[in-house]
Amino acid sequence: MKLGVFSVLFSQKPFEEALDYIASKGLDAIEIGCGSYPGNAHCNPSELLQDSAKREAFKKAVDDRGLIISALSCHGNPLHPQKQIAKEFHDNMIETIDLASKLGIPVVNTFSGCPGDHEDAKYPNWPVAPWPNDFQEILDWQWEQKIIPYWTEIAQYAKERQVKIGLELHGGFSVHTPATLLRLREAAGETIGANLDPSHMWWQGIDPVQAIQILGREGAIHHFHAKDTAIDPVNVHKHGVTDMQSYTLMMDRAWQFRTVGYGHDMKTWADIISALRLVGYDDVVSIEHEDGLMSVDEGFTKAVENLQQVLIREPLSEMWWV
């Protein structure tokens, strides 16, 4: 396995300065934002696609520091019911897929998106209950008319360019659980897989180890984020896991994102790493920092230190004791 980071943490730094800092921490890989929600501070696909010299310089800057690019990320909502908003996310994703193909990067990470509840809707509608029956009718319409047709087309486009799509399982979007990921994968093909982030499993009440085993049996983990979540044992009974309060209201929230090791202990993280290897994922574990109690540098550094303890780096050997 390799240890990496989602470099949007360091968007305020020039690209090569960020690479130097990341390499100085002993990391092996970098995941780079290419627009939409993550922004494109370090990688503008439009510019790089138009200029081969810029592409070569971009790749060389990474290679020269002994790093690899684990994924390009363009998280957005290409199914947004407002067509112009959807188009901007869609166009950015297509450019990101094209750039990944040209650079030989294996995965593009994004969100599944979430449609509205009818053709003239203005805002996404995320049904989370089977009754009243209106919600089931909305969900059926979304999957049959929007989600499956769109992602079947995108999956084919990416497959032709030898790029996999890693959908981050995230609340508020249509694909947010192992089951919804597998439903889409069955319809759209194996190019679709998960960018699995355990932090989003914990707040939904899903054990990440079980999620890894469910998805891993199907070969459906394309990328992995390392981020933690802390559940407040009092506030969760007040607000529930679908707490809609701002992330800034940390004293009153039911849960909050934490850096690795500050929501769950290292035995839990060792179990997660072991589960990844068990199902055959021996690729990059990419740190994502969204901890409201720590600075970027401190949160990132602690995540690196904690993961270095449990990451399984060496290739498998024969079981000499068998």
Rank of each mutant, 00 (worst) to 15 (best):
A86S: 03
A155H: 04
Q12V: 14
V304R: 10
L293D: 11
G35K: 07
S246Y: 04
T177H: 02
D282Y: 08
P149F: 06
A129S: 11
V163K: 06
D207R: 07
K159T: 06
V5S: 09
Y247W: 08
S70H: 05
S295C: 10
Q210A: 07
Q84D: 07
A187C: 11
D28E: 07
F10Y: 14
P127E: 04
I206R: 09
I206S: 02
I231Y: 00
V107I: 10
F224A: 06
G66W: 00
Y123M: 15
L139D: 14
P78L: 05
L182T: 05
R185I: 04
G216P: 03
R258F: 07
S52R: 08
H200W: 05
L316N: 03
Y157E: 02
K102I: 06
V107W: 07
F224M: 08
R217Y: 02
D271F: 01
I94R: 11
L79N: 05
G172C: 04
K238R: 13
Q204I: 04
P124E: 09
T268N: 02
E137T: 14
G216F: 01
I148L: 11
W269K: 02
P115E: 07
V279Y: 01
T229A: 07
M250I: 13
S101V: 03
E119W: 09
D283A: 13
D265A: 13
V296A: 13
E16N: 15
I273S: 09
P149R: 07
